[in-house]
Design a protein around this nucleic acid. Structure first.
Lengths: 204, 204
DNA sequence: CCAACAAACTTGACAGTGTAAAGTTAGGCG
DNA sequence: CGCCTAACTTTACACTGTCAAGTTTGTTGG
């Protein structure tokens, strides 16, 4: 009610169709293939139609990022579900979901963290970003030493998995386009085994 | 001698001028501002001239990456010079140089690690990349446990500092365009304090 | 009921971009 | 000297984003 009345007259809401087309283009051809005109063509409208729904290409990207964050969170939640329920197991599962999202949807990840920190400068998507960020915050909480800033552990974990994901996407490890040396992720993420657990419980 | 005879006839070698112009554009306007035609204009030649020296825009980017790697290594070497000479101090200084390069030359970093892993798929720049990578390998060596793959520690450190640098560039931490919370780097990089030193010497 | 209005969308145009095909110049070499 | 190859220019084309007008369509006020 408070927001838009669902669909207008011509095209039962075009905005969502454009975002969907944009994501499809992103999956097929990476961030280079994302184009306002191609999105419009896929949605069956003229090339200038998107201007009435987004503020240019940058606006479309923020809208895609907003949607992408949902998928991002879903990947991490799915990994959390599959994995062990210990604090350290949950932290590692979250990272695994992060990596899997990046490898399967590299284009969306590029849009989310693209250019000048779209992830932070979008006011619109900050809610969804907050959701993804809250997952990280929650998983990190058991490893925050009493009296210290929780941000530190969060940034440590975030930097590690973010860097690993991007370096994998850039093909820095592995000879070619290998899907991923499954062992490498486990061995690299094992660095988090050295994070001391704050709560007195000793299970890993 | 074995390579090109320095300068030809018209423009005392244009290739270097184009790379220089490209780097300048990169510094001024980021990776979006890097354009074949603008490079050509800056070098005072026609817009199709670069085609005789690079294989399109991608080729120019690989040439810039090749040059950028030199600057990259120089930043890490400078940080190594300034810092303490203990194994752990050297490792942290390397990371500091990595971050400083990224913050000061974000455009070049984006080109180096841009798109589909230019950093790895360029055969031409692999020598320079090897140089930068050797610095990392060297700094990590004291922390490689006997009998384990050195790659693991290297990727751990690389992922951490790479992710932290990119997240800083994306403005994910800090409210706005703050140059950098100096303390945050130290606190995050302190994660490396937990890497056990392989050699029996106990100095940090 | 209908005229006015606003929003969605189209059409057309313009400045950039990469890139390919030609033509032009200039230095090297038989 | 005459050619020839490389460097460079000119021209052209298919794209891109973006703006300024029109045109349609649904709503709304009188």
């Amino acid at each position: 009610m408070t927001s838009k009345p669902d669909q207008k007259h011509h095209h039962g809401n075009l905005r969502a169709a454009l975002v969907e087309a944009g994501i499809a283009l992103l999956e097929e051809g990476g961030v280079e293939a994302l184009t306002l005109r191609k999105c419009a063509a896929r949605a069956g409208v003229s090339h200038a139609a998107p201007a009435h729904h987004f503020d240019g290409l940058a606006g479309l990207k923020t809208a895609i990022a907003e949607e992408g964050f949902r998928l991002f969170s879903a990947f991490m939640l799915a990994a959390l579900d599959r994995g062990p329920k210990t604090p350290r197991g949950r932290l590692k599962s979250l990272c695994r979901g992060y990596l899997e999202f990046g490898l399967e949807h590299g284009g969306i990840l590029a849009v989310i963290f693209g250019e000048r920190g779209l992830g932070s400068l979008i006011p619109g998507s900050s809610r969804e970003q907050a959701h993804a960020y809250l997952l990280l915050r929650e998983a990190c909480a058991p490893f925050v030493p009493a009296g210290t800033n929780a941000l530190i552990v969060e940034v440590q974990v975030w930097s590690l998995i973010h860097g690993f994901t991007l370096l994998c996407l850039a093909g820095e490890f592995g000879d070619g386009r290998a899907p991923l040396d499954e062992g490498l992720f486990d061995q690299v993420i094992a660095l988090l085994d050295r994070l001391p657990q704050a709560s007195p419980v000793a299970n890993t």
